[in-house]
Design a protein around this nucleic acid. Structure first.
Lengths: 231, 231
DNA sequence: GACACGACTGGAACGTCGATCCAAAGTGGT
DNA sequence: ACCACTTTGGATCGACGTTCCAGTCGTGTC
């Protein structure tokens, strides 16, 4: 058999870069969710082969990390309202992260897994500065900032998970109503609390409740560390 | 070619049940992490084939859901200290969940993903009863309970993620010290806060900090909803 | 202007995964 | 002794992440 030179499609003229790959990955993740990003769909989308992608990116984990970092960076970047009181800036940063994760639900699972390492310091710094400005005593800076970041990421992750199990086609109010109806039919003996708050769950607004949690935490900070004692 | 009857290993005498499968799945998940549970390792562990497992379980997602439910149920089941003040019982439930997720880190990723649906009502009910006992006004029951559950699961998930990226062989104090050293060398211009609290991070205790977060949230509840106004 | 060399590309192939299929083996009723 | 139903596990499938490598382009050198 002759050495059979392989037929090849013409080489691309526009260079493939790491940024373009990450950008395409974010697009695919947004469009089809975490399971929608495969090297097959990615090579189709970029009209290339796996080898080209592996030249710029070590593996899929690194690609997901870079995609997560891009989204988190963009969300934290809009925080340019330099002259607001620290409470307002904490709320603003928290809401920006919440909205970013709501818009890119795959980020939540990623932050819970590995890429925490890359994005966490940026979030931590952003929140921490405001914690310091709140007048929290030095010894509590790390604890208070950690608690806030944990709540923000935890609440955003669960909100994203809730939205994702519903699927994109389902109306949120309908699904909430159906779940509330299920809760109302629980045995009052075993589920006295859940049954009672079914109605409140059906009517709640996710963003409002998230902000209520931030306010609750900030009220706790005020109560445990009054602005006078550490300034 | 003759019809070739297939050689088969003798059929098992002890019946395979859904519980035994879930139990084996939890063992494998604990021993080798989330990536360690495959239908190959599971069939080897149970000395069977995939068909036998699929007879009792619809798919891998359902298996993970059942495993998560088993762990969460066991953690909530020990909450039998009926006669403590509500604050103490909230702390006890929160710590039980924190420890369970610390011991079974794969539960965190699972709760952030889909099985939230199955385990959440149990957690919600357990926390919610104590929220009611705290004297929170009716209209705030759902919000306060949600915030607490979101913080508990979020903090536990991030703690588990941190422990998992380290790997089982690495000493926690060493890894924390190394990360702290990295943080101390950050540019003070860009990372004033993170750099300053590097030392605090190196010395912090995960469980203590988690409880500090619970106390912060409970202080916030007291401040925003004093026990007098809703009792 | 030829030539070589390194950067970059993409098609083919590999091993493993979740899942399905189905012949065989057990079980219980008549 | 027979049959219908339940349960099992080996073979197999398509899709995934990843690796391999023949090939192509751009650029510097003489």
């Amino acid at each position: 058999m002759p050495p059979q030179t392989r037929r090849r499609s013409p080489r691309r003229t526009d260079a493939l870069t790491r940024e373009r790959i990450v950008e395409a990955a974010v697009e695919l993740l947004d469009a089809t969710g975490a399971v929608g990003l495969t090297f097959r769909t990615l090579t189709d989308h970029l009209a290339t082969g796996p080898g080209a992608i592996y030249w710029h990116v070590a593996n899929k984990g690194e690609l997901l990390e870079a995609a997560t970092d891009a989204v988190v960076g963009a969300a934290l970047g809009v925080d340019t309202s330099a002259e607001s009181p620290p409470r307002e800036r904490i709320r603003a940063v928290a809401l920006a992260l919440f909205d970013a994760i709501d818009e890119h639900p795959w980020v939540a699972a990623q932050l819970s897994a590995g890429s925490w390492q890359a994005a966490a310091p940026r979030i931590f710094e952003s929140i921490g500065r405001q914690v310091r400005a709140l007048g929290v005593p030095r010894g509590e800076w790390f604890t208070v900032a950690s608690v806030l970041v944990q709540y923000i990421l935890g609440a955003a992750a669960q909100n994203a998970a809730n939205a994702q199990v519903l699927g994109p086609g389902v109306d949120r109010a309908d699904a909430l109503g159906a779940m509330a109806a299920t809760w109302e039919e629980l045995d009052p003996e075993d589920w006295p609390f859940t049954r009672t708050v079914a109605g409140q769950m059906a009517e709640h607004d996710d963003r409002e409740q998230f902000l209520a949690g931030i306010d609750l935490a900030l009220a706790g900070v005020d109560a445990l560390h009054p602005p006078s004692d550490g300034r």
